[in-house]
């Protein structure tokens, strides 16, 4: 358009479908930014992973050909080791504790800690807690014995499943539906809306809410792009991002509730196991970090109210 010529266009790519709470929140961010900047800045969103996987998008941010992305904290581990904290199970007591950390100075520090990797965090989106789903009910770690569980590409996730007694199996996300259907793996783990939206419930009838990890989504801008903005533009963008986060958290809560109801309506058995036996099994993972920066971060999180 005519005003598009003068405007700064920030291209934002991510892997979620267009009706996902994250994408809707990004649209709100775009609207806010246009408003704040008097239409001199706009955000163009590329959903559905059409510009690449989360890992690819992070590299494109570093290269500078893409401005912004949203990734799960998990692939960020390969760029900024501190993000491993979210893959370690049972670091957070519950959802409130998790958000208290994200909103504390610890969370702020984490967002800025990726700057040496040319990535600046603008904020966290809620991605809930991750739980197991499988072809069989999982009520205790004993039930996981011998089960093949697909995990994210992170060594911390692999260790977690091993400690809980399962066999961690790497399967590409795109192949997971058929792998579950044909029994190459017995189960996987994810948050409730993803379990629903990925339709994996069609082939795994049991959801076990053990809530082992809280892995947030992270909204990032590449440093090459960030540095090309004026301080005023940076402030507008940060404001728009903050507003979209508030909006996304409400949407996420609704989406989680709706997904849970839809899952139950589709005959999925939702199990709420006692988390303590799960927590006990993975405590050695916490102890292994004693006297390391990661251990200090973990201690700081545990002392949060």
């Amino acid at each position: 358009g005519p005003q598009g010529e003068a405007a700064t266009v920030l291209r934002l790519a991510h892997g979620m479908p267009a009706d996902h709470p994250v994408n809707k929140a990004m649209e709100v961010m775009g609207d806010r930014l246009r408003e704040l900047s008097g239409a001199t800045m706009q955000i163009e969103i590329y959903p559905n992973g059409q510009l690449g996987s989360e890992r690819d998008l992070l590299e494109l941010l570093q290269i500078g050909s893409l401005a912004m992305t949203k990734v799960s904290a998990s692939p960020l581990e390969s760029f900024v080791p501190a993000y491993k904290i979210f893959s370690i199970p049972y670091v957070f007591r519950d959802h409130q504790h998790f958000w208290r950390m994200l909103e504390s100075p610890l969370g702020r520090e984490l967002l800025l800690s990726s700057e040496p990797a040319r990535l600046r965090g603008l904020g966290f989106y809620d991605a809930g807690s991750r739980s197991f789903y499988a072809s069989k009910p999982i009520r205790s770690p004993e039930d996981l014995e011998g089960m093949k569980i697909r995990v994210q590409k992170s060594m911390t996730s692999v260790e977690m499943v091993k400690r809980l007694g399962g066999a961690a199996t790497p399967i590409a996300w795109g192949e997971l539906y058929t792998a579950l259907q044909q029994g190459v793996v017995d189960g996987a783990e994810n948050n409730i809306p993803s379990f629903y939206l990925s339709k994996h419930y069609e082939v795994s009838p049991y959801l076990s809410l053990d809530e082992h990890t809280y892995v947030p989504d992270v909204l990032l801008i590449g440093l090459p792009t960030w540095n090309s903005l004026t301080p005023q533009q940076q402030a507008w963008l940060q404001q728009a991002a903050d507003d979209s986060i508030t909006y996304q958290r409400q949407l996420w809560e609704q989406k989680t509730q709706q997904s849970l109801e839809a899952l139950q309506a589709n005959g999925i058995k939702v199990i709420t196991p006692d988390k303590e036996p799960f927590r006990q099994r993975v405590l050695p993972m916490h102890q292994a970090y004693n006297n390391t920066p990661m251990g200090d971060l973990m201690d700081a999180i545990k002392t949060l109210p």
Binding site: N48, G174, Y177, T178, L197, E202
Partner: peptide, 18 residues
């Protein structure tokens, strides 16, 4: 089974893979 039908299902958001 077909990988591309799974991709379509996820992109459409509404159709079941089955």
């Amino acid at each position: 089974p077909s990988n591309i039908l799974i991709v379509y299902s996820l992109a459409s958001g509404s159709v079941s893979i089955a």
